[in-house]
Amino acid sequence: MTMNTHPSLPEFEYVQPATLAEACEFLASHAVEARPFLGGTDVFVRMRDGFLTPQFLVDVKNLKGLNDLHFDPKAGLTLGAAVNMNRVIASPEVKAYYPLLAEACRSVASYPLRTRATIVGNICNASPAGDTIGACLTLDGVLHIHGINGPRQESMASFFLGPGKTTLKLGDVVTAIHFPIPPKGCVGMYLKLGRNQLSDLSIVGVTALGYPDSNCKSGYRFRLALASVAPVPLVPTQAETYLANHSITPESVHEAARLSTDACSPIDDVRGSARYRKQMARNLSAKALAEVWKKLN
């Protein structure tokens, strides 16, 4: 618990670099004391709580390109790191091609908070509860990162190391996330169970994406990602493989849900018990898969 939350933000220096290179250099040379931030919706809260005590907050949201939302019918969607969630939700291209991404964003907090919150910020926090991470995983998001040695790309699949821990190195700034054009005929869904109807963090969240795939024995490929059931956003690969190899029936959906539950290692916390989370991982996985399957047909 946070007993001694500050009344307001503790002291720090606000740094606004002019270029990406400048930002990376500053972050690299102030290894411990500097932190990049976009909307600040997470970092400010944790600073008030005393969990983070950066001396410098490096505002990267106005750097060139970070506010671009770009869609190309062949290459896919590139979201600048600073593109806020409300812009993602409102984008006609996202609505048309990546509705799952919009659905996940809509489940985050409230409209005013989403004016500031970003998908890249959500990913970089690396909370196992991150609501948009499942969509980014199942849509094969690729992070564009600028480090001291220049730009590189990293797949979402290998990005998370633990709660709050990622493969990002000192001086790294994530500049964008890119999504390829989703598979033809794909259907996605994010089922989020919070304590309230909307706006809460997830007790359990299940992202499911399915599409016809002739390479699979079942004729369909399903992708799954679970929130708040493991130290990192969880991809239950066994469940995915099972559905690729078995024809899709209520029984196989249940078996996949069971496999996805087996992959979970939830904890007891203020939001829910491990026992309940296991149950919900199963029920919501089954429900999400069944709903996606229904829409595929």
């Binding site: 618990m1 946070t2 007993m3 939350t5 809260v45 304590r195 309230n196 809460d200 963090l201 203020v270 939001r271």
Partner: peptide, 11 residues
């Protein structure tokens, strides 16, 4: 100790 002294976890 109160484990949830904020709107995040006192809903």
């Amino acid at each position: 100790f109160v484990r949830n002294p904020s709107f995040v976890d006192y809903r």
